[in-house]
């Protein structure tokens, strides 16, 4: 069953001037898939990821997540989906810099209905999963780029989401740290069965996925299996 179903989707940023960035996109993503969305800068790949991640409204077309049309979600439900079913990893990490790894990872739990008694165990297990147990009480501004991104991955995982969105997750990292982050994402897909949608402009990074959507000028140029 498809987790995401997209048919004839368009996105226009209304100006002036109005700017259409996505044109008539149609594709679907199954549960458990690892898909990379690749394309040059300005191609609309991040915009597509934001629409898939319920962070941005599509202008028209069909967009279903888990069988339910996006427009049928209330504002509360959209927030709930982002909180419970999706995890986000951004290029710029987007951590609260004066808070610890532990506090940053706990953030999504505060907006969920998970009982507070379960928080500690959940946080510790995801921090351990990304290999940051020894840094748990560190202020995130004191961490290296790779450690910050792994903190962001732990935060994305803490609510046990169905899908993880990674927007240029290695864009701000050196090669070695980037490899660690990509290994973590691959592990989450292979061993834990998470659906992962990765946006990147780097071919090598995109090829870590099992399927690649190539976007250029807001249109899908190719949609192919890699592995």
């Amino acid at each position: 069953m498809s987790l995401f179903e997209i048919q004839n989707l368009n996105k226009t940023f209304y100006g002036p001037p109005d700017t259409q960035v996505l044109f008539d996109l149609s594709f679907s993503i199954k549960k458990g898939e690892f898909v990379s969305i690749m394309g040059p800068s300005g191609s609309g790949k991040s915009t597509l990821l934001h629409i898939l991640g319920f962070l941005l409204d599509p202008s028209d077309g069909v967009f279903r997540f888990d069988g339910k049309e996006y427009c049928e979600h209330s504002e509360e439900e959209i927030a709930h989906v982002r909180n419970k079913k999706m995890g986000f990893v951004f290029q710029t990490f987007n951590l609260l810099p004066r808070q610890t790894v532990y506090e940053n990872v706990s953030l999504p739990l505060k907006y969920s209905s998970t009982p507070e008694s379960d928080w500690d165990q959940r946080i510790k297990s995801v921090v351990e999963l990304v290999g940051l147990s020894h840094r748990s009480d560190f202020i995130t501004s004191k961490l290296s780029g790779g450690e910050r991104q792994r903190t962001a991955i732990a935060r994305a995982l803490v609510n046990k989401p169905e899908v993880i969105f990674a927007d240029e997750p290695t864009g701000n990292l050196d090669t070695k740290s980037g490899d660690v982050v990509m290994d973590t994402l691959k592990k989450l897909h292979k061993e834990m069965g998470h659906t992962i949608i990765l946006v990147t402009h780097e071919k090598e990074t995109a090829e870590c996925a099992e399927r690649m959507l190539y976007i250029k000028d807001g249109q899908i140029e190719s949609d192919r299996k890699i592995h």
Binding site: R82, N94, R155
Partner: peptide, 16 residues
């Protein structure tokens, strides 16, 4: 502003 955006991305509602 970035913090607010982040909180919303992580599931905060307008009310939150």
């Amino acid at each position: 502003t970035k913090e607010i955006g982040l909180r919303k991305a992580l599931g905060a509602t307008r009310q939150d």
